[in-house]
Amino acid sequence: MSFGDEHDGQTRTRLPDSGPGTPRPPARSSRSLIAVVGVVALLVAAIALANRGDGTPDSATRGGAAAGQGTPSPSAAPTAPTGVRPVTGKNGAIPAGFARDEQGAQSAAANYAVALGSVDMFQRGPRETIVRALHDPAVADALVKDLNDSYSAGFLANVGLQPDGTAPAGLTFVSRTIPVGAQVKDYTGDTATAEVWCTGLVGLAGEGSTKPVTTTWFTITEKLKWVGGDWKVVSSEQAEGPTPVNGDNRASVADDIAKAVEGYGGFTYAR
């Protein structure tokens, strides 16, 4: 499957003010199933984490060169955006104001995948903010309710988190989705179906963690609708892969992973 650009074959990025991540609790059947299926599917990496038995603490993982050095910076300085009609607006911390064309739909889908796979999705208040910012209002209410039910205290405990979705003292919860490429499969002007090929990080970093940070590969398909002057998600689905062969890099110790997550900000993605 090709994930190349419909236009020039390049993906361009600019740094935002904050950084994002990945995840899926059990799918639920309800009147909002069509809307829920996709976002709930984004939580698949977290389910794998929750089901993983206690293993060797992350701190005991083979050592490697430090991934982040010096004083962590909460956000990186933004660079000048490139591309045709780059994103200039924001809806809270989430990029907004995408172009009403295929390139804009790809950019919206990539940025929405990042937000829906972030650490904030594990906390009730921030999760509702994200869902309402990204989705068609016609599906948002039901989706918020279903996701609140799915992110139960029991599910969060299985992932290794506190009942409020935060990490235990001394540990850093990592959940990031990183788009690798995107393409539009269908476009009408008012609707679009975009695929985003992603890799993700999920787990707990820190001394004594029994759920070390791991990587996943998946493709998210988002059905988008032009609503109120921007692209909004109507539904989404996730499929595993395409997954490349693992390289020979040695796994870093938990503290290095935690420093990297705290020190390296995420990106705003645009073509």
Rank of each mutant, 00 (worst) to 15 (best):
Q238G: 04
D141K: 13
A77C: 10
T243P: 01
S209G: 07
S30F: 03
E195A: 15
E222P: 01
E240V: 09
A66P: 02
D146Q: 13
T166Q: 11
L224M: 04
A153C: 00
A167N: 05
N148R: 13
G68H: 02
G68L: 12
T188G: 15
A192K: 11
G247F: 01
L201T: 03
F3R: 00
V159M: 10
T199N: 12
V84M: 11
D164E: 01
P95K: 05
G241S: 10
G19F: 00
T56I: 15
T188W: 14
R127N: 09
A251Q: 12
S118M: 01
S59M: 11
P26I: 13
G203N: 04
S29G: 08
V44I: 11
F173T: 06
L171H: 05
I34R: 14
V44M: 12
P20Q: 13
R14G: 09
H135Y: 08
P95Y: 05
A167Q: 01
W197S: 02
S118E: 02
G92P: 02
V139C: 06
R31E: 11
E262G: 05
W226D: 07
P126G: 04
Q238V: 15
E6F: 12
T13P: 05
A50V: 07
G9T: 05
F122Y: 10
R12L: 13
R52S: 10
V139D: 02
T22K: 11
A270V: 10
P126F: 01
M1A: 15
I220N: 04
D141V: 12
P179W: 05
Y264R: 13
A182D: 02
G92A: 15
A27F: 10
F3L: 12
G160R: 00
P23A: 01
K145S: 06
A109V: 08
E240D: 03
K211Q: 03
V36Y: 07
G189T: 13
P137G: 07
V119T: 09
T216P: 00
G165L: 05
I257K: 10
V253T: 08
G229M: 10
N91H: 01
A133S: 12
N158S: 15
A133K: 00
K223L: 06
W197Y: 11
P126Q: 03
T199Q: 11
G200I: 00
L204F: 07
T71C: 09
V227S: 04
T221K: 15
Q10H: 09
T129E: 15
S59H: 12
T129A: 14
T214Q: 08
A157V: 02
A157D: 06
F98G: 02
A65E: 06
T56Q: 13
V227E: 10
Y151P: 00
G55F: 06
G97T: 06
P78F: 08
V180S: 10
D17S: 05
T22E: 10
A157Q: 07
Q238H: 02
G97E: 08
C198S: 12
L42G: 08
V174L: 03
A142W: 05
V44A: 15
G266L: 04
S59R: 05
L42E: 08
G38W: 04
A46R: 07
D186S: 14
T177E: 04
R14M: 12
T243M: 10
R124C: 03
I94K: 02
P244I: 14
A77Q: 14
T56N: 10
V184S: 04
P179K: 08
P74R: 15
G55C: 14
D8I: 03
L156W: 08
G83M: 14
G265M: 12
N91I: 04
V213S: 05
A115E: 02
V36G: 11
P126C: 06
K232Y: 01
